[in-house]
């Protein structure tokens, strides 16, 4: 699934095998956010997009599905130019793209099941019976069958993410876009979500773009990465080559991420010790189960 990528030239026109092709993308809001970003994603491949907060990672994802329009540059999805599509053309490509939003973006006024059903109704012509089956299958994949009739407000952060994930895969997309899938979750839940992403990719063969500022997540889910800084892709290539880069910002970024990971592990060990010290073993297991679904903001 790894594609040789070192020496390719983005000006050759769409290659037939690239699922997504991004060419010289630029967008400015109050200030320039993306200045010149190019990237290819091939069928079945997972690419991580790394970078600090506010560097335009979410903007990049929204450009790909046509939620935002670039000032210049082009995006192709399956050889269709997203940036030139109208309302109906966009609807068409969106039925092949799953988008996991950062906060899951479940519709508040509907149950989890209704959230999934809505996407199926709008993107397929399936009869109710088959939709029901697909919803059950998607929820089973994220191990959330019991939450089908729950409202989003009754779910924890990790459960919301998983429900959002189920909602984006229920339409069986060819491309998944993940916006910070593990941010705001405790390390245990975070790694279970990361593993889920890998499972989905391997079971369904979906190509993915995973936006994150968390290196461990990137390493778990992908082999190839792009690092954004100041509107440019300052690194693009295999993750293991990240360490070899000379770029000063990358060094700082890697160092900070490593510190972060050490802090994760330290806090995790401390928590385990505390739990082990609890006299009642029953209470201790209960604590872990609940803890794994609590957002631990300080850790991320």
């Amino acid at each position: 699934m790894i594609h040789p990528f070192q020496h390719h030239n983005h000006d050759q026109g769409p290659k037939p095998n690239a699922l997504v092709r991004i060419e010289h993308l630029a967008i400015t809001f109050d200030k320039p956010v993306l200045r010149d970003v190019s990237l290819d994603i091939h069928k079945g491949e997972t690419v991580a997009v790394l970078g600090k907060s506010g560097t335009g990672k979410s903007v990049l994802l929204k450009l790909i599905v046509g939620l935002l329009t670039p000032d210049s540059g082009k995006i192709f999805f399956k050889d269709k130019e997203v940036t030139a599509l109208g309302e109906f053309g966009l609807m068409d490509i969106r039925s092949d793209i799953g988008f996991l939003f950062q906060g899951a973006a479940l519709f508040d006024s509907m149950t989890v099941g209704q959230n999934l059903d809505l996407f199926l109704v709008k993107h397929t012509d399936l009869p109710p019976k088959e939709r029901e089956q697909k919803i059950a299958a998607a929820l089973e994949m994220v191990q959330l069958q019991e939450a089908i009739d729950k409202m989003p407000s009754e779910l924890s952060g990790g459960m919301k993410k998983r429900a959002g994930l189920a909602r984006s895969i229920v339409i069986e997309p060819e491309l998944m876009l993940y916006d910070e899938p593990t941010t705001g979750l405790d390390p245990v839940t975070a790694s279970s979500i990361a593993e889920l992403i890998v499972t989905l990719q391997q079971q369904l063969g979906i190509a993915s773009l995973v936006v994150t500022h968390d290196l461990p997540t990137a390493f778990t889910v992908s082999d190839r990465a792009m690092v954004l800084n100041e509107g440019y892709a300052i690194f693009e290539g295999e993750l293991k080559d990240l360490e070899k880069s000379e770029d000063a910002f990358l060094h700082e970024y890697l160092a900070a991420s490593r510190l972060d990971r050490e802090r994760h592990d330290r806090i995790l060990r401390a928590r385990e010790r505390a739990l082990a010290a609890t006299q009642n073993p029953k209470a201790a297991t209960k604590g872990t189960a609940r803890g794994s679904e609590t957002d631990v903001k300080v850790l991320t």
Binding site: K62, R94, F99, F101, G103, L106, F107, L118, K122
Partner: peptide
């Protein structure tokens, strides 16, 4: 708050 939580974007993606 639907805008902030990206529910409006999600509607667009859902073709709603």
């Amino acid at each position: 708050s639907m805008r902030a939580s990206e529910q409006i974007d999600a509607m667009d993606v859902a073709a709603l």
